[in-house]
Design a binder for these strands. Structure first.
Lengths: 334, 334
DNA sequence: CTGAAAGCGCTAACAA
DNA sequence: TTGTTAGCGCTTTCAG
């Protein structure tokens, strides 16, 4: 019931607590014999270090915060997995907060994490607006901030993990072109997210190249949910603008689009092809299965965790920006 | 940069740390005047209590563990939300681990949480097999275990949060019957999960009542994913067993079923109606939108957190079993 | 009403 | 190679 402490071991072995500590930490200044005895006893008695005490001692909470806009889609969960892969074995705790795509909640979450005295924060912004003030404040408190996926527009001196949005968007749109599509719609998310414009740039570039760019085909959803996808495609159809394919900013937007099209008896991909950017399991959970740019989410999480560790170990370490490669996955929707 | 401590306040105000502490804790044994001065200074200087120190002092880690089988679906995230609602304001940290539906990983996760010295664990089992030994071990360490959703078959003395599976399954199946369906298939998940049989009982009872029970219509998927749903419905179709509707154990199984049916040009709900049990956002993200039994997931999380707190406050508190009410939501698939 | 001192579990100077 | 001591930030007896 009661946990075994170093003190218990010390009594049991008639050694000072410092010797026990040293033996446990594999300090060289311990007699081999002694160390063996300590390790044995520790093992037998089921000694587990008290992480709280370690934290207090070291001044580090051994906790990192993870702030995500939502967990409705598997997106954040995959990234989390990567973070856990790296951080759990090192004894770090991870505290997750969900912002519900609401900057106010995001702000409260960051404050919460500050209270929790986290050693670093890994964050995927919610859309709508920025919290630059608070980001700066957090960093001012000496808490490293690592961004992934969605970045703020203005450059903060932070490490970040992203994918080559623009290039992959180009390639995906080119795939649509090569399968015979000419009237390709880009459904943007809110432009407060940098990636939204990045992907638009990729889209634009390739359409320009093929000389089929038409700015009427760029439309903007009011948010990122399935419902937002439905709404925006309905608007487009109502406007009677002709199109033969869709490139959506995210899986969820694409799903909303697909649902609405199917309801209108528009066939996918025969009448309209649909592709998206994101690459969560959702793409293969829907009908028809969705062609999308798949991001290496778990790897991104691992990378973000590593960047966080860099900053924790050396608070003056230079910020690094890591760009990872996303992969095009062709499925039934195109 | 450096956090303000109680000591800093003590120096600044020329008071002992104990007085500061008392003032901050609203202890009555403090002069009103003094308390005011302390509170003022604390506020002005941005004092934040060091949670780690508190933990060490109290012997509680102020951390609770949350073990889930997966986070691909929004299910766990919703429950998590509820837990956070209750626990974050109280200064608790929540550590999440994902078992990937793998009992070995589940076991490792539980051990990890034990190392982290959590004050309680809220858990949703993974399927396939049990880890009863370790559950018992954890409880033996004095760490309360709270189950929700999926329970182990044998009764452990734990608090739990569930829904009225059997009744709601009956009602949902009755809904199918009332909309004219007679050949209703039940797709089970792995029977290691108690709910699987609970829902089957509900299904069976109502079909018996209407005198249309046929045990050939109960089929078992090998897992819980979309792919498992596809596999099992394919098998059924290959067997040429006639059916006009499906009641699936989970959203994901139902989605797999729907995808495969649609691919085979079988119309939903005209040819085959589909209903499920679970009630995550997924139901309304797919086409056609899925009729399902919606569980009050966030509320369940809140309840689970409260049960955990009960046990934390008084380790000898009796275990409680809370059954919550699920709601039938009719959508386009039936 | 306020202060001094001990202690939560551990590590790390400093002594021996 | 081992032990003693102090201290991380806080609460809580016990004195005053």
């Amino acid at each position: 019931m009661k946990r075994i402490t170093i003190k218990d071991l010390s009594k049991f072995l008639s050694l000072s607590t410092s010797t026990i500590s040293r033996a446990l930490l594999h300090d060289k200044n311990v007699n081999d014999e002694t160390r063996k005895r300590v390790l044995d006893a520790a093992h037998k008695m089921g000694y587990k270090p008290n992480l709280t005490a370690l934290s207090l001692q070291s001044g580090q909470s051994k906790t990192i915060g993870f702030v995500v806009p939502e967990m409705i889609t598997p997106f954040s969960a995959k990234v989390l997995k990567g973070i856990q892969n790296i951080l759990y074995p090192l004894g770090y705790r991870i505290i997750i907060t969900q912002s519900d795509e609401d900057p106010l909640i995001e702000r409260k979450n960051l404050q919460l994490l500050e209270e929790f005295n986290v050693d670093a924060i890994i964050i995927n912004l919610c859309h709508e607006t920025y919290n630059n003030g608070i980001y700066q404040h957090i960093m001012g408190q000496g808490i490293p901030l690592i961004f992934f996926d969605r970045l703020p527009h203005q450059s903060l001196d932070v490490s970040k993990v992203i994918v080559n949005d623009s290039i992959k968007a180009s390639l995906m749109v080119e795939h649509l072109i090569k399968t015979g599509r000419k009237r390709i719609v880009y459904i943007m998310g809110p432009t407060t997210i940098r990636n939204v414009t990045e992907r638009m740039n990729g889209y634009k570039r390739i359409l320009m190249k093929y000389n089929i760019f038409d700015e009427n085909l760029i439309i903007q959803a009011n948010g990122m949910t399935v419902q937002h996808g439905r709404d925006i495609i309905k608007q487009l159809l109502d406007k009677n603008i002709e199109f033969d394919s869709i490139f959506a900013f995210s899986d969820t937007l694409a799903m909303g689009v697909m649902n609405y099209l199917l309801e209108q008896k528009i066939r996918i991909p025969e009448d309209v092809a649909v592709a998206s950017f994101s690459g969560t399991e959702l793409s293969s959970m829907v009908y028809p299965q969705l062609t999308s740019v798949q991001q290496p989410l778990e790897k991104m999480g691992e990378k973000a965790a590593e960047l966080a560790l860099e900053k924790i170990k050396d608070s003056s370490a230079a910020s690094r920006s890591v760009t990872m490669d996303a992969e095009l996955v062709y499925r039934a929707s195109t």
